[in-house]
């Protein structure tokens, strides 16, 4: 297991370096922070002073080296806007995003397993058709449109939930509902497919011949075998959420990493953007390791390879 993680780290390091280089230079194409942070009528001298204080006058390559060597000291620089460590700002935003992603995935996986298994019991039956159509619609609906529609109906018109911001549990309802739709729909389809395949497998016939109750045939014998494709899809979706959902967090004014990154880009807060990308990359790396471990736990044939 240790070797496996090390090999994975070595592979990921190369892509991480590429990513860091790309982000460092791309974010600087957005323009100079001085134009944004100083008043329009600031004197040229004041502008030069600002640029000098923040070290933006030095050659690009020197700035890059400073950032890059900082990575090895776990120093991700300081925010221009808030004048405190960028890493700290990003890490403060993470719990909100992770909670949002975690709850969304939990609801999606549980819902998708129930719907998919239900549909797979009688393929092409009425229930299966209804679930298939609904899951297709759910997976294809554009998030931002659903978000805006739900806000107008439930927050503006019916006034049962707040429009945006963060606070009690009622602030989580709309964002989670919107974010759940896509993974729920996609996963329900994957669960259905995998379960239909598993339910026709000879070992399911064996289980039935043993007198195993149908519930156990479904959830113990078939579902465990169907879990690998489900895990793959759930993993993909979860990784997509790690960076926070940029659009949904922005629409609902949710203070997660997604919204933080959008704000940081608009504010040309280079260090925060960089810190956000680096930390997200590390979290995604950890997430992928977790998924691989889960594969091995679920299927002994992978474990014994």
């Amino acid at each position: 297991m240790g070797n496996f993680v090390l090999a994975r780290m070595a592979q990921s390091l190369i892509s991480l370096i590429g990513l860091v280089v790309l982000v460092f230079f791309l974010v600087r194409l957005t323009g100079s922070p001085a134009d944004l942070y100083l008043p329009d009528d600031a004197s040229e001298a004041a502008r030069q002073e600002y640029i000098r204080i923040h070290g933006l006058d030095r050659p690009m390559i020197v700035q890059f080296w400073e950032f890059f060597s900082g990575l090895f000291r776990l120093d991700l620089g300081e925010s221009l806007r808030q004048a405190r460590p960028a890493a700290q700002i990003v890490l403060e935003a993470y719990p909100t995003s992770l909670k949002l992603a975690g709850l969304t995935m939990l609801i999606s996986v549980i819902g998708a397993v129930l719907l998919g298994v239900w549909a797979a019991v009688r393929p092409t039956g009425l229930l299966d058709r209804v679930i298939s159509i609904l899951s297709l619609a759910s997976a294809s609906a554009p998030n931002f449109w659903v978000a805006l529609t739900l806000i107008s109906v439930f927050a503006v018109w019916l006034r049962v939930v707040p429009t945006s911001g963060i606070g009690g549990w009622e602030y989580w309802i709309l964002p989670i509902t919107v974010l759940t739709l896509r993974p729920l729909g996609l996963l329900a389809q994957v669960v259905r497919e995998a379960m239909i395949r598993a339910l026709t497998a000879p070992y399911v016939r064996t289980a039935k011949s043993k007198g195993v109750p149908f519930r156990s045939v479904l959830f113990v014998h078939a579902l465990r075998n169907a879990s690998l494709p489900i895990l793959t899809m759930a993993g993909n979706q979860a990784v997509g959420f790690i960076n926070g959902s940029v659009v949904i967090e922005s629409i609902f004014g949710f203070p997660g990493v997604g919204k933080l990154m959008i704000d940081a880009i608009q504010q040309r807060d280079f260090a925060v953007v960089q810190a956000g990308v680096v930390i997200t990359a590390v979290v995604i790396f950890l997430m992928n390791i977790l998924i691989d471990v889960a594969y091995a736990l679920l299927d002994p044939r992978i474990r014994h390879k």
Partner: peptide
């Protein structure tokens, strides 16, 4: 009530035990 018969009174042994046994359980 069928489960009281199948496996208990009448049992079945299938061909190709590799696929007839569940691969993910001991």
């Amino acid at each position: 009530d069928w489960w009281r018969y199948t496996g208990e009174k009448i049992a079945m042994v299938f061909q190709d035990a590799l696929t007839a046994l569940n691969p993910v359980y001991t």
